[in-house]
Design a protein around this nucleic acid. Sequence first.
RNA 1: GGCCCCAUCGUCUAGCCUGGUCUAGGACACCUCCCUUUCACGGAGGUAACAGGGGUUCAAAUCCCCUUGGGGUCACCA
Length: 566
Amino acid sequence: MPYARPSSPVPLPPHMPNPSCVTRFAPSPSGHLHVGGARTALFCWAFARGKGGTFLLRIEDTDQKRSSDSASVGFLKDLAWLGIGWDEGPVLGAHGGGAHGPYFQSERLDIYNRYLAQLVEAGKAYYAFDTTAELDAKRQAAKLAGHAYRYDRSEMANLPKATVDAWLAEGRPAVIRCKTPDGPITIVDEVLGEATLPAGEVDDFVIRKADGFPTYHFAVVVDDELMRVTHVLRAQEHFNNTAKHMVLQDALGFRRPIYGHLPLITNPDASKMSKRDKDKVLRKTVIDRKLTAPPAGTITQARFEAWIADKNTQLELAEASALAVGLEVTLPEINVDDFRQSGYLPEVLCNFLALNGWSPGENVEKFDNEFLKQRFDLKRVVKTPAKFDRVKLLSFNCDAITGMPREEFVARARLHGQEFHADFMKKITGAQFEQLAGASHERSKTLDEMFRTNRFFIVADELLTWDRSKNVEKALLGPEPNGLSHLKAVLPVLEACTEWSAAAIEQAITPYAAQHAEGNLGKVAQPLRIAVSGGTVSPPIFDTLAILGKASALVRIRRCIATFGG
RNA sequence: GGCCCCAUCGUCUAGCCUGGUCUAGGACACCUCCCUUUCACGGAGGUAACAGGGGUUCAAAUCCCCUUGGGGUCACCA
């Protein structure tokens, strides 16, 4: 067991007694939590909690250019929404805290510097004064020569101490590099097995940047040790980094955690999932439609032009969303929050995410986090990358929604509406909403769907317009007796209704259909649906009429008759 | 390109470690039929995979080798 090595000989912050298992999720707050990160967090959480261990969260904000406070708060909220609670880390509600902080790397500079000094002192790391331009040139040359670039330490590693001190004193920019020992390095991984990198593959990598911040590699190794992390579960893109981390652990005399590298989650076309995907969709739409100006009320003309002119310019999330609304296109969900907005259930997202890269076997597919916690193990993690299948996710979501009690759906849909469709909620009474949600329950694949497909409910009666689609024309203006005639005939029937409930309306309409439409309810229902909704799709017609209210329904029917040539 | 890893239906995967029970199982998607006042749901069927080639063995999806294909990585980003 690699972890059985003696504890750190470097007595820095006092350690708590080690729990059996400590995992960590360590995102860099350079955006929003995306599904890949969420899956990693979920597995880390399940692994630790399943073993009675500790799951900790650490924010890797050592890149000053890319970090922001709001981004890290977003991460925390996303995690909490998914039901992935952390025992140690930044505090949010009941989550976080702990004795091994601070959990923001930007607040741990002193700690890193002490270890850095120790390595330099011991001759295991050295200052290097190469400029970025010099290094770039060498890399370029290596590329042209057709071989991989490796840092050549001969110059900087052998600088006399006096020179180094003098250069530092005069303020020359310098990084610190780790003096990587020669020889092959064997990575032991619980998912992938063993892999040996030949000698020379790992060069003298930078461990402290010129701005004084440690690099990712250094901070990770120090923090994992001090936070007594036992198991590192992370995405496979980090696999090769492991060698660097091992070099550092050896140099510092640290324990070695157990590693498990998780397969990547990609787009269906195997490309990396990234926020750029949103940009791509928008760009394609704009180009396909040959637009030269943004839709009104989205982004400014100047911003639009700058964005279109340069493929490397990316819209901010808010800009992209606004433009998507204006263009009436749907952006692909990438971040956890996107899925929340789209009306996915957190428990379903977790379930589905867990299925990308892991499975409990025995043909079990549907499970909750509790099950995952009990059953998750590294042995069943697959090695191959998974293509993220939104269609299957949607199917799972649909199953979960239609499978929940009606009251639960109504309640969750209400919360969703209050957050994302405030305009809709304002224009509808509580009772109406309850009825509408109840009627939408069994046909909803997401919490969001009913708000998008039922907008006709909140349109003013006199502003309702009708589709002129083939189906509408057919239903209304077909051979006699056509829909329009039925509408005219059924109008007085509805006017005569004294009670206006779904059941009462049905009782009034059914006899009519029996008499005048050969019992074919559809012949009457569909024209009514079109009349009151403007289109061919709505909740069941009697519910729809009842929710709308008698006055609205009658106004709409009369207007429809007039519009289609009564 | 160097290095590392991987390879089962269109997709997510079970099976592989400990060869025979695999005429390869499940799920999503797709197709057909049924149900149906729209949409959706639901029900019953169906199509569909061991990348290719060599070994080893009485026997290979399972073990070995090669080829091909895919992914990752080669930053003062994480």
